[in-house]
Amino acid sequence: MNLHFNQSLAKNYHSEPQKVRVLSEAWVKENSYCTNCSAQSLAEFANNKPVADFYCENCNEQYELKSKKA
Results as ranks from 00 to 15, higher is better:
Tyr63Asn: 01
Phe54Ala: 05
Tyr33Asp: 02
Tyr55Ile: 00
Glu30Ala: 14
Glu25Gln: 14
Glu25Ala: 09
Ser67Leu: 03
Lys29Gly: 03
Gln7Glu: 10
Asn47Ile: 02
Lys19Trp: 04
Pro17Leu: 04
Glu57Trp: 14
Thr35Cys: 00
Arg21Glu: 14
Phe45Glu: 08
Lys68Gln: 10
Lys68Val: 14
Tyr55Met: 04
Ser32Gly: 05
Ala43Cys: 13
Glu30Trp: 02
Tyr13Thr: 04
Cys59His: 08
Ser38Asn: 05
Val51Ala: 12
Ser41Ile: 01
Ser41Gly: 08
Ser8Cys: 00
Glu30Thr: 03
Glu16Pro: 01
Ser67Ala: 13
Glu44Trp: 03
Lys19Ala: 00
Pro50Ala: 08
Pro17His: 01
Ala70Trp: 15
Val28Met: 11
Lys69Asp: 06
Cys56Met: 05
Lys66Met: 10
Met1Asp: 09
Val28Asp: 04
His14Thr: 13
Ser24Glu: 02
Lys49Asp: 15
Ala52Lys: 01
Lys19Asn: 01
Glu30Gly: 02
His4Tyr: 14
Met1Val: 06
Arg21Ser: 12
Glu57His: 13
Gln18Gly: 00
Arg21Cys: 04
Glu25Cys: 07
Phe54Lys: 07
Ser24Trp: 00
Leu3Ser: 05
Gln62Trp: 03
Gln7Tyr: 06
His4Leu: 13
Asn48Thr: 11
Phe54Ile: 02
Ala43Tyr: 15
Glu44Ile: 02
His4Arg: 12
Asn48Phe: 14
His14Gly: 11
Gln18Asp: 06
Val22Phe: 06
Asp53Glu: 09
Phe54Thr: 01
Ser38Arg: 07
Tyr13Arg: 06
Glu61His: 09
Glu25Lys: 12
Ala52Thr: 04
Asn48Asp: 15
Gln62Lys: 13
Ser15Leu: 08
Thr35Asp: 00
Val22Ile: 15
Ser67Asp: 07
Ser15His: 08
Val51Glu: 14
Ser41Lys: 13
Tyr13Asn: 08
Asn58Gly: 04
Asn2Asp: 15
Phe5Arg: 04
Asn6Ala: 09
Gln62Leu: 03
Ala26Thr: 04
Thr35Trp: 00
Ala52Tyr: 09
Leu9Phe: 14
Asn12Pro: 00
Ala43Ser: 15
Ser15Arg: 11
Ser8Trp: 00
Arg21Tyr: 07
Lys68Met: 12
Ser32Met: 13
Gln62His: 11
Tyr33His: 10
Ala46Asn: 07
Asn31Glu: 14
Leu23Met: 11
Asn60Leu: 14
Ala70Ser: 15
Ser32Pro: 01
Ala52Arg: 06
Ala26Arg: 06
Tyr55Thr: 01
Phe5Lys: 03
Gln18Tyr: 01
Ala26Asn: 14
Glu16Gln: 09
Pro17Ile: 07
Lys19Ser: 02
Asn6Met: 03
Ser41Gln: 12
Tyr13Trp: 09
Glu25Val: 05
Cys59Lys: 10
Cys56Asn: 05
Glu16Asp: 05
